[in-house]
Each structure stands twice: as C-alpha cells, then as structure tokens.
C-alpha cells in the first residue's frame, strides 16, 4: 500500500483529481457549469437521444397496439351505431312520408265521413299498354273488391279492374273502357269521362257528351257527380285542357288532364265503402 502511495501513478492520479477539482470549483463558481459535463454531455446526448427515441418507439409501438385495438373496438361500435341510426333515419323518413300521405287524406275523410279507406302501394306497372295500368299490393283479403274506386289525395285515378287474394290491377282514367259520370265544378255542365286511345299517350283523357251550349272552359276543375254509384260524389278527377268538337256527333268534348301523373303514383287509397256505393261486383 505504501508502495502505491509513493508510486508515480498515484501522484499522477492525484494531480488529475486536483486539477479537475480546481477547474470544476473555479468554473462552477464563475460560470455555473462544469466544462467536463458539457463535453461529456455533447458526446452522450446523441447516443441518449437515439436510445430514448428507440425506447420511445418500442414503447410507443406497444402503446399504439393497445390504442389501435381500442380504436378498432370503438370504430366497430360507431359503425354499428351509424348503421342503427341509418335504419332509424330510413324508418323515420318512411314514417314521415306515411304521415304526410295520411295527413293529405285527413281532409277527404273529414269532408266525407262515410268513406272507408284501404291504403295500398303500387308494386308493378303494365308497360305493354299505354294506359298507365298498375298493380297494388292489396286484394280481396284486405276487403278490396272489383270496381272499388282508387284515389290519391288529389282525387280519383281509376278503379279496381281485377282483384286476386293479395293484389289488384287498377284500371286508370286513361283506359278506354272506363266511364265516370262527371261535371264541371264551375258551370255544372255534366258529361262522361273516358279514356281515349289517341289521347292516352299524352297522359290525357276526355269528357264526352258535352252539350253544344256548354260553358266549360280550359282550366275548369272536373269533379265526379256520383251518378251510377261506382264513384263517390265531389271528388276531383282532373282539369280541362281544351274543348274540341266531336267527330262523331254534333256535341263537344273536353280534353282532361288527370289529377296525377299516373306513371309517378306510388301510394294510393282504395275506397272500399262509401255512402251510395253500388256493389257492381256482387
């Protein structure tokens, strides 16, 4: 041990310690930083940063995985929620549409308390004929009978031409076979509304048997007169487009535009019963 304290190596080490302490003490008092720390820090910092970055990355990777799993779960939940909301929205829109549809009929029901309605939906259209014939999703099981009037909130559009258990085919006002007793709402001139082969493609029909001294004018509203008992009284059928002289007799006929574009009708009501109805099917 004594040998060590007397050796040159000990003296060198002691000198280094003394010098470092002296430098540290002086600079610590004067500069408040130790230059050896700066030097060491300058060497260590990049390594430390790299290590920290690697540690951060590795740690972050596992954190990220956990977070990803949570985000995925949350995403799934949100997707489910969005799907449910979408369904709810569709239901809501459907309900709103139905509500509007029924609200429109409320006025008719208030004006004619004897009416019994059966709501129906158009499920098919016969495009092989130009008369706007369509099929609805209600048949005899729902109480629908042949010759029952088919209406929308705007007015009459036809009657049940054929009925089966679960569906019915509607003969529209454009069909040449139809015959509705109608009158002009303004002048009370009466006539018969029927379809015409020549007019069907333009989506119009005609009011025939108008007397020569009629006062019907373009724009007049045509309503059902209720004669015959197939259609109730006072429902709109269409508006007058023009008046023409008949080719077959000395009378006149009016070209009528129906209350609805028949190609665009989606929801209808079948009048299964009303006051004064004659049950032709029976």
């Amino acid at each position: 041990m004594r040998f060590f304290f007397k050796s040159k190596r000990f003296k060198v080490i002691l000198a280094i310690i003394l010098i470092l302490s002296l430098i540290g003490g002086v600079t610590g008092v004067v500069l408040a930083t130790a230059p050896q720390s700066d030097i060491l820090g300058a060497i260590i910092r990049p390594v430390q940063s790299a290590a920290d970055s690697v540690a951060g990355t590795v740690g972050g990777f596992f954190d990220q995985m956990q977070e990803n799993r949570a985000v995925l779960d949350e995403n799934e939940q949100l997707k489910e929620q969005a799907a449910q909301d979408r369904y709810k929205l569709v239901d809501y829109e459907e309900l709103q549409r139905q509500n509007e549809f029924y609200k429109e009929f409320l006025g008719i029901k208030e004006d004619h308390p004897s009416f019994s309605f059966e709501p129906a939906m158009v499920i098919a259209r016969d495009t092989a004929q130009p008369f706007g014939t369509f099929t609805i999703n209600k048949g005899s099981l729902a109480g629908v009978e042949q010759y029952d009037p088919v209406i929308t909130s705007a007015g009459i559009i036809g009657y049940i031409g054929q009925v089966s258990a679960t569906q019915s085919v509607v003969k529209t006002v454009l069909h040449p076979d139809i015959n509705i007793s109608v009158l002009d709402n303004r002048t009370r001139d009466s006539g018969n509304l029927t379809g015409d082969a020549a007019l069907a493609q333009s989506g119009t029909c005609k009011m025939i048997y108008l007397p020569r001294d009629n006062a019907v004018a373009a724009g007049d509203l045509i309503i059902s007169s209720g004669d015959g008992g197939v259609f109730p009284e006072g429902l709109m059928v269409g508006t007058v487009s023009e008046i023409k002289a008949s080719e077959n007799d000395t009378g006149y006929y009016a070209v009528i535009r129906p209350v609805e574009e028949l190609d665009e009708v989606d929801d209808v009501m079948v009048l299964t019963d009303f006051e004064g109805q004659s049950h032709l099917a029976e």
Binding site: Q129, P176, D196, A197, A200, E247
Partner: peptide, 19 residues
C-alpha cells in the same frame, strides 16, 4: 295487344303506330 288494349276505336290505329 293493340286490339286487346285499345279495341277497334278510331284512335287505335294512331296508337298502334305511335306505341
């Protein structure tokens, strides 16, 4: 189809050619 749908009316021929 024309005879079944439009019948023998005057406008049937017109409808035959136009539809």
């Amino acid at each position: 189809n024309c005879l079944v749908g439009a019948g023998f009316s005057a406008g049937s021929w017109l409808l035959y050619f136009t539809f």
